[in-house]
């Protein structure tokens, strides 16, 4: 179980991105985080694997305090948390294979990995991961030769290499068209069904309804809603997205 307790983040610039955020995520949940742009979704997800250090508060994962973990322990924790990004964040000039293998860095022999040597087992794992997302044939290509949807599948495969117990997905489909969006989210859903907890930020409510087992809504760094997707009625919607955004958002539903 992941417990987020009184989490606050103030950037050096003075922006307070998260204000006293607390919620729990049970194992096996598909938790979706929604909120307007700038509401703090990315900040929240990055705090969980400490790509960003929170200013205050605690994150407990199976009673281990992530926020207090020293560097070596933090790396052990991170390798169990896969992450998928809106911009895919692949190394564009590297091959698909190398990108996927890099998901294994937390497990690999550090010296071997530095000279780019990977064991046969790790290579097989990478091919299997690519196979799961249906692009094993692209292993040798440069990452930037792939389409957006394919790149995000590589992103998912990279996360799979970590044998994660938790996947953080920060707007994983915001750069993709609706059809691709569903295919990527279906992979995440599949993984979720296999027991991996997923925390995912999303923009479109139809996707939220379709995939979320639970929803947390942020507004200006504060949790304004926590519950199931079905509970988001017109009033709640207004509260989360504001009066003006209503029509735009409603139109996209």
């Amino acid at each position: 179980m992941l417990r987020i307790q009184n989490l606050s983040k103030t950037y050096p610039s003075g922006t307070q991105a998260l204000k006293n955020v607390s919620f729990d995520v049970q194992d096996g949940e598909f938790m979706v985080v929604i909120g307007l742009s700038g509401s703090g979704k990315s900040t929240l997800l990055r705090c969980i694997n400490r790509l960003i250090d929170p200013t205050e508060g605690k994150i407990l994962w199976d009673d281990v305090d992530i926020t207090a973990a020293p560097p070596a322990e933090l790396r052990q924790i991170r390798r169990k948390i896969g992450m998928v990004f809106q911009q895919f964040n692949l190394v564009k000039r590297s091959s698909v294979m190398t990108n996927v293998l890099s998901g294994r860095l937390g497990y690999a022999n550090p010296w071997m990995s530095l000279i780019g040597l990977w064991s046969a087992d790790e290579k097989k794992r990478a091919i299997d991961a690519l196979d799961r997302v249906g692009i094993a044939d692209k292993a040798g290509e440069r990452a930037d030769a792939l389409s957006g949807g394919q790149q995000q599948r590589v992103g998912v495969a990279r996360a799979l290499m970590q044998e994660p117990k938790l996947i953080l997905a920060d707007e994983p489909v915001a750069s993709l068209d609706p059809v691709l969006s569903h295919s990527i989210l279906q992979y995440l859903e599949q993984l979720n069904k296999e027991g991996i907890t997923v925390i995912c930020s999303l923009h479109f409510l139809d996707l939220v309804h379709r995939y979320a087992t639970r929803v947390v809504a942020l507004k200006d760094g504060v949790i304004v809603f926590e519950g199931s997707a079905q509970e988001i009625d017109r009033a709640k919607f207004k509260e989360i997205y504001g009066e003006e955004a209503q029509e735009v958002r409603a139109a996209s539903l």
Binding site: R75, R78, K80, I81, F85, N89, L90, S102
Partner: peptide, 15 residues
């Protein structure tokens, strides 16, 4: 972006 992604896999500084 990629640097962040690699940090997130639990890689150490040199990796």
């Amino acid at each position: 972006g990629p640097i962040e992604a690699i940090r997130a896999t639990g890689a150490n500084w040199v990796q």
